[in-house]
């Protein structure tokens, strides 16, 4: 990639359904260009990908029919940086705890529980301390939210809430159970896009990538 591209990486937003425009606005705020991904060929030339909140069963079904699911699996397995929120977190999990026969993309060595905090009646907002982002805490909006039951050895826990893992990362892959795209707080999006810049930079620039900090 050219130096000019590095400052404005091209981030795809999975757009089969869900909170797409909210992520586009957040990514634009942190200096990324965005493009919508609904069909497999739309993955070409991306530097990173966001999987938004929405209904994960719907994502799996629609993306599965067009061959997008398989293409996503391949690109992410071969190192495409990815940021998943809520349903995106579920799609990136290696396994769903309980009755989960739904189609996933995988890529993160995590086990998740769907609708773990309950139905909409139990949906909530609360301050979430994310140590790598420093002060203040993020305002976490949790909507029929999942949580992470278990993480593998390569996965770093970024945040917990009420005793459950609600944000994690594995190198340039970040997941969270809440919705930073619904607030004006862009710190997690910036962390992700900085990681994309780091991942696509020449080797000697790697250390400038924000994703490296604290992930050793």
């Amino acid at each position: 990639m050219s130096a000019a591209d590095l400052t404005r990486p091209r981030i795809g937003v999975l757009a089969v359904q869900g909170a797409v425009s909210e992520h586009e606005a957040a990514l634009a705020d942190v200096g990324a260009r965005t493009t919508r991904v609904r069909l497999p060929h739309e993955l070409d030339g991306l530097d990173g990908l966001v999987i938004p909140g929405g209904e994960s069963t719907t994502f799996g079904l629609i993306a599965g029919r067009s061959g997008l699911l398989g293409a996503l699996h391949e690109r992410i397995a071969s190192g495409l940086p990815v940021f998943g929120t809520c349903a995106g977190l579920i799609m990136l999990a290696s396994r769903i705890d309980g009755d989960g026969d739904q189609a996933l993309i995988g890529g993160m060595d995590i086990v998740v529980r769907r609708n773990a905090f309950g139905r909409q009646l139990a949906s909530f907002e609360a301050d979430v301390v994310v140590p790598v982002l420093g002060d203040p805490p993020m305002r976490g909006i949790f909507i029929r939210a999942p949580w992470v039951e278990k993480v593998g050895p390569s996965v770093e826990v970024l945040a917990e809430h009420a005793g459950h893992i609600v944000a994690a990362r594995d190198r340039t892959r970040i997941v969270c159970a809440f919705h930073p795209e619904l607030t004006g707080d862009r710190r997690l999006h910036r962390l992700f896009v900085d990681g994309v810049r780091g991942a696509t930079a020449p080797a000697d620039e790697d250390l400038k990538g924000g994703i490296r900090v604290g992930s050793q």
Binding site: Q17, G18, V20, E22, S123, F124, E125, I143, R144
Partner: peptide, 24 residues
């Protein structure tokens, strides 16, 4: 004040509709 945080806020209510966008 729910067990985990504030429930029934405007953000939480309107937020679920945002997650349904583009859907049937």
């Amino acid at each position: 004040a729910g067990a985990n945080g504030a429930t029934g806020t405007d953000a939480v209510k309107a937020g679920l509709a945002r997650m349904l966008k583009g859907g049937v």
